[in-house]
């Protein structure tokens, strides 16, 4: 279904989406490695773009941190942003839930659209925006409360008071985050007693509890061991069925494993703003990137 048309003929990216039998009925060469145009790729297809950045530049005070970023994030897919430290990947994330406003002295040019609506419009309620666009942080950051209260935090903010309703939300969120089995008998325990990986899945469950549409993940596994990382990746794979996920990661193998689209960002020279060098289907980026900078980075020939 979805990805296949996006990929402009490059079928194998979407494992399980198209069976070869169906494919062989289609006309034309079924496999073409070339032809996925960078930023245009996802936009050209019938799949809906959940988030769109249009010519976005971003300033911290006088410093230009991002230059002219145009990025279409398709719905119900995992989109990864990779690139060396300080290239502005996390800044791009923050623009999507307006967390950059918590820093002060920032300025945004261009448009950031969520379902076609510019979220930087004056009349967009940032509180409502953030309930639609959740964020998972680099370091697991559960509140020093019980597991239950952590997850009920968001729903309670939104006025859910009934015990059985909250119980349902807590269970559903934990199940979705693949943590339910491990904690169902100790929901009253402090979240701080969980392991790092469990804490991060708790944070995912906490975000799911407010039923967001988009989930931003800022290097969610960088503080975790390989097993915990694996569990988070498995969770992401399931979540993508229902949510649009944008993940920033230092680990390009991770981007390759879990994402359907990848953007490569780079600061060409110190002091310059971060730019989106290339954006396209993950299989394309990791097989035949258009840009030499991308190839150098993902093959470890960077610098």
């Amino acid at each position: 279904m979805s990805t296949e048309s996006l990929l402009d003929g490059w079928k194998p990216t979407a494992p399980g989406d198209v069976t070869p039998r169906e494919e062989s009925k289609m006309e034309g060469s079924p496999v073409r490695i070339e032809g996925v145009r960078a930023a245009a790729a996802p936009g050209t297809a019938s799949v809906r773009n959940k988030v769109e950045l249009k010519d976005v530049s971003f300033y911290y005070g006088d410093f230009k941190a991002l230059d002219d970023i145009t990025l279409d994030v398709p719905e119900n897919q995992v989109t990864a942003l990779i690139g060396p430290s300080g290239c502005g990947k996390s800044t791009v994330l923050r623009l999507i839930n307006r967390m950059h406003e918590e820093i002060g002295h920032t300025r945004v040019e261009g448009q950031v659209l969520l379902d076609g609506r510019d979220i930087h419009d004056r009349d967009v309620d940032v509180v409502e925006l953030r309930s639609r666009v959740g964020e998972i942080f680099q370091k697991p950051n559960p509140f020093p409360k019980s597991i239950y209260d952590n997850i009920a935090y968001g729903p309670r903010l939104m006025g859910v008071r009934k015990k059985d309703e909250l119980d349902d939300i807590v269970e559903r969120s934990l199940v979705q985050a693949a943590l339910w089995k491990e904690v169902k008998n100790k929901l009253g325990n402090s979240a701080m007693d969980l392991s790092g990986g469990q804490q991060q899945r708790l944070c995912i469950a906490r975000t799911l509890a407010v039923q967001p549409e988009v989930i931003l993940m800022d290097e969610p596994c960088s503080a975790l061991d390989p097993v915990a990382t694996q569990q988070i990746e498995d969770t992401i794979e399931v979540l993508k069925e229902d949510y649009t996920i944008i993940i920033v990661t230092h680990n390009m193998q991770q981007a390759a494993r879990i994402s359907q689209f990848t953007g490569f960002m780079l600061v060409q020279e110190t002091g310059e703003p971060g730019r989106l060098v290339e954006y396209g289907a993950t299989s394309k980026i990791f097989t035949m990137p258009d840009r030499e900078e991308t190839e150098n980075y993902i093959t470890g020939r960077f610098g």
């Binding site: 079928k11 194998p12 494992p15 070869p20 079924p30 496999v31 299989s283």
Partner: peptide
């Protein structure tokens, strides 16, 4: 076509899944 599909799938899995 099947052969091409298999080749593409092999490539994609190797490129993305280590």
């Amino acid at each position: 076509e099947l052969s091409l599909w298999i080749e593409g799938k092999c490539l994609a899995l190797q490129a993305q899944q280590q």
